[in-house]
């Protein structure tokens, strides 16, 4: 179910705990955590990573209307009360509006109620082991996220499904404490070893992420720590040593996934970096082992 029909306002500013701003849904995925999973992609991220492979999920539309004139299908219209009107029946998904958006947002993003998401999860429940909420940064929509997970837990059919988030780890401790009772695990990106590099490639502070890793591990809910392998950037000796030091202090036996960097979907600035070579992941995993991490290491 989509809340905003054609030609109506699709972007409220006020946070609402029963509504998600949804960038996309994959009903059946085997790359977002253990087993087959229903995956909900939320719009909006508080990091601005150079390597982001889905940059149009970063911003949340502020109604600037630069996109309105660019749209070749007149699917977008001048904002009312600062918000874009969108007619999905006229849209052919060309993506021009996302390309021109100065804040990496998406004016076509729709709202979806927690009820609607639960209904859709029910249609795939026998096929999946759990639900992964990712993004964007899922914890930015904490109210709706908490509502979704707690209602799943209370539902006889959905109760057995595991509830994971795929997060940048920026959520404050108070936020985690609200979410933890209804969360089964978090997969956290630790994007660099040193705070300096973190600032450079995410334009955000690393210390919050490290604090989240400790908090989640102490609660037994740190499902995985991920490193995006950008050769010559995140895999230098200094970086890998610092990365391993942080993770070892959290838990040397935590699951680790080293992910390849690809150009698909990235912005121009990221194209200067090389895509991850064939043997590089193996090499980095070996190095992390030498530095005291025991894995398991996912591919």
């Amino acid at each position: 179910m989509i809340l905003a029909p054609a030609g109506t306002i699709s972007h409220p500013i006020e946070p609402r705990i029963d509504v998600f701003e949804v960038a996309g849904v994959v009903r059946s995925s085997f790359v977002d955590g253990p087993g087959n999973r229903y995956v909900l992609f939320l719009q909006g991220c508080n990091f601005d990573c150079t390597a982001c492979h889905n940059p149009s999920t970063i911003g949340r539309c502020d109604g600037c209307a630069v996109c309105v004139d660019v749209c070749p299908h007149t699917a977008l219209a001048v904002p009312v009360a600062g918000r874009i009107l969108f007619d999905p029946s006229a849209c052919d998904q060309c993506g021009d509006c996302r390309t021109v958006c100065p804040i990496s947002a998406d004016p076509t993003i729709r709202l979806r109620s927690v009820d609607a998401v639960l209904t859709e999860i029910r249609t795939v429940a026998p096929f999946v082991r759990g639900v992964t909420v990712t993004g964007g940064e899922p914890t930015l929509q904490l109210g709706a996220l908490k509502s979704l997970f707690s209602r799943m837990g209370a539902d006889p059919e959905l109760g057995p499904l595991t509830r994971l988030v795929d997060t940048n780890g920026s959520l404050a401790p108070a936020g985690w404490h609200e979410l933890l009772p209804v969360l089964d695990g978090a997969m956290v990106d630790l994007k660099s070893g040193t705070p300096q590099l973190h600032r450079r490639i995410t334009r955000s502070e690393q210390s919050h992420v490290v604090a989240s890793l400790h908090l989640l591990a102490d609660a037994g809910k740190l499902a995985e720590v991920r490193l995006l392998l950008i050769e010559g950037v995140t895999d230098t000796d200094v970086e890998l040593e610092a990365w391993a030091r942080i993770v070892t202090a959290v838990d040397p036996g935590v699951s680790v996934r080293v992910m390849p960097f690809r150009h698909e979907g990235t912005r121009t600035a990221a194209r200067e970096w090389p895509i991850t070579g064939e043997r590089a992941i193996e090499r980095v995993v070996d190095r992390l082992r030498d530095l005291g991490l025991t894995g398991p290491f996912g591919a």
Binding site: G35, N36, R129
Partner: peptide
């Protein structure tokens, strides 16, 4: 593991 889930669903 995803194959286990898909088989159960099927």
């Amino acid at each position: 593991e995803a194959l286990v889930d898909l088989t159960r669903g099927a």
